[in-house]
């Protein structure tokens, strides 16, 4: 179902729940994987994904259709990720490096990465990037978003995003050479 049709159905009380259910089915995987790559842990990603869709439900009536629904949902997911990581730092009075170390430990002990040393090293190299650069890298490299879409989601210019991605790739290649 097209986004426009979904929104029209969501606006009508009799088809609201059905339309929202379809919206969740349509975007859940993209939202989940975007979050999961940032927070690594499945339980955290699950909780944040549900929270993102609850916020979508609450605010969908206010959604202005001059933006794409997909980029709007992506922006909510991105903000949730950044808030989660910030609250983690505040909650445990951790410096950034300790949160990164915690995420690296999760990668190291992840059964999904057991036996795949190259992927493990790549994931750990990505985690060494600053949070916002990591977001840019994930969105371009894994999600293959266009710079224009990323610009809409992150509120950053296309030029700055291109530069950020280029630097991120160089850093990752450097990290991998060092290991």
């Amino acid at each position: 179902m097209e986004d426009k049709e979904l929104l029209e159905k969501f606006a009508r009380p009799e088809s609201r729940n059905m339309a929202f259910n379809q919206l969740v089915r349509k975007y859940q995987e993209k939202v989940y994987w975007h979050i999961r790559k940032m927070v690594i842990d499945h339980d955290d990603a699950d909780d944040l994904t549900q929270e993102v869709f609850v916020k979508v439900w609450k605010n969908l009536d206010n959604f202005r259709q001059d933006a794409q629904l997909y980029t709007w949902i992506y922006r909510i997911a991105t903000n949730e990720c950044l808030s989660f990581l910030s609250s983690k730092k505040r909650k445990f009075f951790l410096p950034l490096n300790d949160v990164t170390a915690e995420l690296m430990e999760k990668v190291e002990s992840s059964p999904e990465l057991a036996g795949d040393e190259v992927q493990k090293k790549l994931q750990k190299a990505i985690l060494r990037l600053p949070e916002k650069q990591r977001l840019v890298f994930n969105m371009k490299y894994f999600d293959e978003l266009k710079y224009e879409e990323m610009s809409e989601i992150l509120g950053t210019s296309v030029g700055a995003l291109k530069a950020s991605y280029h630097i991120a790739v160089k850093k990752i290649e450097e990290f991998l050479k060092q290991d």
Partner: peptide, 13 residues
């Protein structure tokens, strides 16, 4: 997981 997620979200809303 992705089969159950929409229902869990609907329960929360």
């Amino acid at each position: 997981y992705f089969d159950r997620l929409p229902m869990q979200v609907m329960e929360r809303t």
